[in-house]
Amino acid sequence: MRNRVKQVLADNYPEIDFEASTELVDDGILDSLTMVGIISALSMEFGIVLPYEDILPENFNSIDAMVELLEKYI
């Protein structure tokens, strides 16, 4: 699962080092436009729709946080 998420992120945003921080949103590495792109890519990969109440900075601050969020719905 983690590798799949990592691959999706690398394919869509090769310019971002997602392992560089565990505060990706709080550090300003991911802005709202990028977050929308990431969620759209992950939705396509895993065939799920994430509810808006789960779109919180803490759920996108690291790859592990994203994996944890996705596991709730898969």
Partner: peptide, 25 residues
Amino acid sequence: MPLAMSPRFMKTCVSFRKKHGNRAG
């Protein structure tokens, strides 16, 4: 964000991305 994250719009985005690729998506 709610608009971009809405299930209907997200489905449209996913099908658009499949058709036209990642960048266009």
